[in-house]
Simulated assay, not measured.
Amino acid sequence: MGWLKRLFGQEKPQQAQVNPSPAQSTTESIPPERMGLNGEYDQSGLAKRVALAFDEDSSLTDIDTLYVAQTGSTVVLKGKVPSQQILSQMVSVAQKVNGATAVDTNQVTIG
């Protein structure tokens, strides 16, 4: 099971992108942290796009003890990871997602 499916209960939409363009039909601009997988408004858009980025990175497998959330434009990782190296890789991937201004790992334990 992938990150997106486990965390948000959805399969990857066919046109889903980590850094999509805003939906064409939108008259108001969508803040980058609220942009969904297809460019639509989504309250959890940043967290979903980070989960998608984790799914698309072949060096990261779904770690079922770690969760992705967001507080505004901050990506929040919480739970447990096997090593500092994996956590560092995840932070690096999350920081590259459009709209992420910070990655909070204060709620992550290693081991």
Rank of each mutant, 00 (worst) to 15 (best):
V18W: 11
P20M: 07
K78G: 10
T26C: 07
K80T: 13
Q70Y: 02
P32V: 12
V108A: 02
A53K: 06
S92R: 10
Q15N: 14
L37N: 07
L46M: 10
G111V: 01
V68R: 06
V76G: 00
G9I: 05
V91K: 15
S92I: 02
L77H: 02
D42S: 14
S44I: 02
Q70F: 04
T65W: 02
Q14H: 02
I63A: 01
A53H: 09
L7H: 11
I63W: 01
M1A: 11
L4W: 00
V18L: 10
L60D: 08
V108C: 03
G2S: 14
P13G: 11
D57H: 04
S29P: 01
A16C: 12
G36P: 09
A23I: 10
Q15D: 14
S88D: 15
V108N: 05
T65L: 10
D64Q: 13
A100D: 07
T26W: 07
D64G: 05
D64N: 14
Q10K: 13
L4V: 09
Q70L: 06
I110C: 06
S83Q: 11
T65S: 15
K12T: 15
P20W: 08
D55V: 07
M90T: 08
S88N: 15
S58G: 04
T27S: 12
A23K: 12
N106I: 00
G79M: 05
V18T: 13
K48P: 07
D57T: 14
S44Q: 15
N19E: 08
T101I: 08
A100V: 15
G72E: 04
T74L: 03
S83I: 04
Q95Y: 03
Y41V: 11
D104N: 15
G99H: 12
G72Y: 02
S59I: 01
Q107A: 12
A47N: 09
A51W: 01
G99P: 10
W3E: 10
V91H: 05
T61P: 00
R49L: 04
L4H: 02
I63L: 04
T109R: 03
D42V: 09
K12I: 15
D104M: 02
L87R: 10
S29T: 12
G9S: 14
V93N: 03
D64M: 01
K96H: 12
Q89E: 12
Q84D: 10
K96P: 03
S29K: 09
P31A: 13
W3G: 13
V75G: 00
Q85A: 15
E40K: 04
K96W: 07
V108L: 03
A69K: 10
F54V: 06
G9M: 13
P22E: 09
A47Y: 02
